[in-house]
Simulated assay, not measured.
Amino acid sequence: MPSAPNGGEPAGYRPPDLTLRGAEHVRRYLETDGEVGYEWNGVPILLLTSTGRKTARPRTSALIYGTDGSDYLVVASAGGADRHPAWYLNLLANPVAVVQVKARRIPVTAHTAAPEERERLWRIVNDYWPNYEVYQSRTDRPIPVVALRPE
């Protein structure tokens, strides 16, 4: 992606509105069954509750998602950080989780896309959030795409 003339983010990067994020995003989504927080910066959001790999306690994150058939797709981008987000590490340790889409809670099993399927799924999630390409440009780690398959 070409760089912006001022040397900042690449052309086409859309800075998100961060007024609702993190724990506050999760809290408002839960309180309203997604009436507040389901749509964020024009994209759909689900809540992912995984089991903490160190604490064994439930951990909930608000994540942009796409779909592939009945699978929910999420991206372990962390904005292009060099480390995987905690929710992804939790899923690696225990792939059984729950997603909430609006008021609906769905048990799922997580699967990280293998290299041969990642390319196709990457295109799907980028249709939802083109900034993922920018996030990938910020790090050397391949950003995982995770399929959350309903049980």
Rank of each mutant, 00 (worst) to 15 (best):
D140H: 06
L18M: 11
D68P: 10
L91V: 13
H84V: 08
Y38K: 07
A62W: 03
T60G: 07
A11M: 14
G34M: 02
R118N: 03
M1N: 09
V125W: 02
G37W: 00
I124S: 02
N6V: 14
D33M: 07
D140G: 11
L92T: 10
T112V: 07
N90G: 07
V125C: 14
R27G: 08
V99G: 08
Y132A: 02
R27N: 12
D82I: 10
N6M: 06
L73V: 13
R149I: 14
P2R: 03
L92C: 10
L89Q: 00
V96D: 12
L148K: 06
D82Q: 11
G80I: 02
N41W: 08
P5L: 06
L63D: 03
A62V: 02
L18K: 09
A4M: 09
E116I: 05
D140C: 03
L63Y: 07
A114S: 14
T112H: 03
L73Q: 07
V43S: 15
R123A: 02
G34L: 01
Y29V: 10
A93D: 07
L46F: 00
E39H: 09
V75E: 02
D82G: 10
W122Y: 07
P107I: 02
V101R: 07
D82N: 12
A56C: 09
Y29C: 08
G80S: 03
T139A: 04
T19E: 14
R105Y: 14
Y128W: 14
V43M: 15
A4G: 10
I45Q: 08
R14H: 12
A147N: 09
K102C: 07
L20P: 04
P2G: 01
A76Q: 04
S50D: 04
R57Y: 13
V96C: 12
N94L: 01
Y72C: 14
I64Y: 09
G80V: 06
G80C: 04
V108A: 04
R123N: 04
P44G: 04
Y135T: 11
Y38I: 01
A114W: 14
E133Q: 08
D82L: 11
P115N: 06
V98Y: 12
D140W: 00
R149N: 06
P2S: 06
E133L: 00
K102H: 08
P15F: 00
A23M: 13
E117V: 11
D127A: 13
T32K: 08
S70Y: 13
G66E: 02
